[in-house]
């Protein structure tokens, strides 16, 4: 259970039922029990931070998602980890249903601090941290700058990428404009669907092919709904993570 802070609103709506269906698909051939996942919002100066939460216990495990994505992508893990602890997974600013970042060109340090302010609003002081990809870099930054608040940290797929690869990624990560001709809807679909098949998603070459294969159609559908909510701002945290010199931040 999230410590009850002053800014918690738990939301259940029709979308939640779609989430539940997707979660059943992902959990289908596993053996772990499924924990109910709830959603809420925390107030910070920029607006609201949406988060998912499950389970009970202290310290909570705070989970930071990859890019382009939202805490929705973490639901299969949240449902399992929530069996044994409290889990809180915020959408990074500019992603999912969180508000957009305030600076025009925000840094990774800014996104990490914004997460910390959201946790303050939820009354969370000391926590365990999990981060995947962009989220791993955010967790890393928090562990370096606030070791008093992070007890243990899991870095799931943290990049130590070369500058040449970073330049290539930066060229392709751009905001998608919302057009009258609705092409942004198709762009969002292909961005999500193709990310299962290629890395990066726009590079349709044998060299970029991934071995994951496509999941049940409901999974990319759900991700597209989240992507559409932030299609003009998703790139800001992604770009900040790529530019962030995490190798220099490590010993």
């Amino acid at each position: 259970m999230v410590p009850q802070g002053r800014s918690i609103v738990v939301v259940h709506d029709d979308l939640e039922r779609y989430h539940d269906e997707q979660l059943k698909i992902t959990m289908a051939d596993g053996t772990g029990a499924m924990t109910d996942i709830r959603r809420g919002f925390a107030d910070i100066s920029e607006g609201q931070v949406r988060y998912r939460t499950a389970g009970e216990g202290d310290p909570p495990l705070v989970m930071f998602h990859m890019s382009p994505s939202s805490s929705q992508h973490l639901e299969p893990l949240i449902a399992r980890l929530g069996n044994s602890r409290s889990v809180v997974a915020p959408d990074t600013l500019g992603n999912g249903h969180s508000c957009r970042p305030q600076p025009a060109d925000p840094t990774l340090e800014y996104f990490a601090e914004a997460h910390l302010r959201a946790l303050d609003a939820l009354g969370i002081d000391r926590f365990d941290a999990y981060g995947a990809h962009t989220g791993a870099k955010i967790g890393l930054e928090l562990a370096i700058t606030h070791p008093d608040r992070v007890r243990k940290m899991i870095l799931d797929a943290v990049s130590v990428r070369s500058s040449a690869a970073a330049d290539e990624l930066l060229a392709g990560i751009q905001p998608v404009e919302v057009d009258d001709d609705s092409t942004h809807l198709m762009k969002a679909w292909h961005m999500v669907r193709d990310s299962y098949l290629f890395f990066p998603w726009w590079k349709h070459t044998a060299e970029a092919k991934r071995d994951l294969g496509l999941p049940e159609t409901q999974a990319p559908h759900q991700e597209v709904l989240e992507m559409l909510a932030s299609i003009r701002t998703y790139h800001l945290s992604y770009r900040a993570a790529i530019i962030h010199p995490n190798q220099e931040r490590l010993p």
Partner: peptide, 11 residues
């Protein structure tokens, strides 16, 4: 310098 106990994982 990271002083936090860390698990580095990757699928």
């Amino acid at each position: 310098m990271i002083k936090v106990l860390t698990l580095i994982a990757c699928a």
